[in-house]
Every structure is written in structure tokens, then in C-alpha cells.
Write a protein that binds this DNA or RNA. Structure first.
Lengths: 101, 101
DNA sequence: CGGCAACTTTAGCGGACACTAAAGCTTGTC
DNA sequence: GACAAGCTTTAGTGTCCGCTAAAGTTGCCG
């Protein structure tokens, strides 16, 4: 799969954000979503095959982390999109606050 | 449609490249592809609705150009992808040259 | 007005892909 | 070895989206 297509998926971008600053086991990543563990594992597989994340095995667990070097050309875009997402969350919070009055 | 999804499509990126430095009528854009005029028009519609291109009407023709301001956060990624495409073309040319020996 | 040129839009189809459920695979523990 | 934990892979399903073909729209010119 093409790198752009891989990054185009919102959940995969969220995964990248989660493993951007620290490595995390698959289970911890899966906890952040309300889809099945298997589905998350598939996303991790896509990211792995695209070379965008690295894996470290420790016992039965697998720790993932973003491969920042590989993601270098997309970094600014990713940060932009993550920021937009935060903005949207803020807007939602405001809207709810409006509603509660 | 989300900006990222819009840009994720290779043909739409190619269209953006075509109208990056100069405005072009839809017909001229369509000539660059081997899909139907209608399909190209649909891509233009997606780009228009996403606010990534601007249109100027002149008689029966419509001139498109990239809205660089709107594309600002994605510029570096676009340039990167356009460069990769050129690299792939170069590789193909080399491969063919190999074959012809 | 008739007719053509330049586009856009609609209906319908096929392929890609994200998801669930379930089976399979390693690794550590008793 | 048996079992469980942690994870991946497979089979099957629904949805989205890019394409074609065809119909619709708008503007120009005799």
C-alpha cells in the first residue's frame, strides 16, 4: 500500500500519534479505540508493511513506535492534522457547553 | 470529503500539479489523462468542493488553478510526492534501456 | 432559434478496504 | 505437555469511491 494511502486513514494517523513519542504494546494501542483488537492489529500490520512503524518483541508483547525517519516528509502534515483534530474537539466541547446552558 | 482523502488520490494530485503554476481549462487537464472527460470533471468537482482549486469562467470554458493558500500545510508533502513520481519514471526509463540492450 | 462546444451531473457498476468473528500462532507459566 | 496471554491472520460482509456511459446545463454564433 502506498504511504499516502496509509496515512490517509484517520485511525492509522491516531496510532502514529500514540507511538510518536513513546513505544507502546499493541494492547495499549487497541485500548484507545472501540474497534476489535483484530482490526487494530490489521492497521498495525499496514503501518508495519509500509515501514512507518518499528516493532520490538518482548515476551508475548510487541512494542510499536513510529519510524520518524521514514515519516520525515509527512511530519508537518501529520502535525497539522493532529492540530486540526484538537481544534475539532475543542469546538465540540464549546458546542456542548452552549447546549447545557 | 476530507482534505487528506482528496489529496490521497494520485490523479487529483496530478491535477494539482498541472494547475500549480498556471491556470488551465478543464479540457487541457483532461487531455493529460486517459480517462473520460466526465471522470476528470468529477475530480475537479471534488477539488473545488474541498476548496483546493479556484475556477474562473470565460465563455464556455472554465479555467482552474490551485489555491496555494489552502494547500499551504500540504505543500511539502505534495512536492515530495511529485518528486517520487519523477524518480519512478526515471527508474522505468532505465529499466527499459536495460531491456533494449 | 438551432446547433455546437465545453463542461457538469446522474445512474449504475466493480474493486478496494475497514470492520467483525473466529481460527491460528508464539511465548511464558504451571 | 497443557493452558493462558498477547497478538496476527483469514474469511466474509457492508460501504465507499473512481470509473463509464449517457443525460443535462450553459454560453456562443450563424
Amino acid at each position: 500500500m502506498d504511504t499516502v494511502q496509509v496515512i490517509a486513514d484517520p485511525r492509522r494517523r491516531e496510532i502514529l500519534r500514540l507511538v510518536w513519542d513513546a513505544e507502546r504494546p499493541a494492547s495499549e494501542i487497541a485500548d484507545h479505540f472501540d474497534i476489535t483488537f483484530g482490526a487494530v492489529s490489521q492497521h498495525l500490520g499496514v503501518l508495519r508493511r509500509a515501514g512507518l512503524v518499528a516493532v520490538r518483541r518482548d515476551g508475548t508483547r510487541r512494542f510499536y513506535r513510529a519510524d520518524r525517519a521514514a515519516l520525515r516528509p509527512y511530519t508537518s502534515m501529520l502535525r497539522q492534522l493532529w492540530a486540526e483534530q484538537l481544534d475539532r474537539l475543542a469546538e465540540l466541547a464549546e458546542a456542548e457547553e452552549q447546549e447545557s446552558r
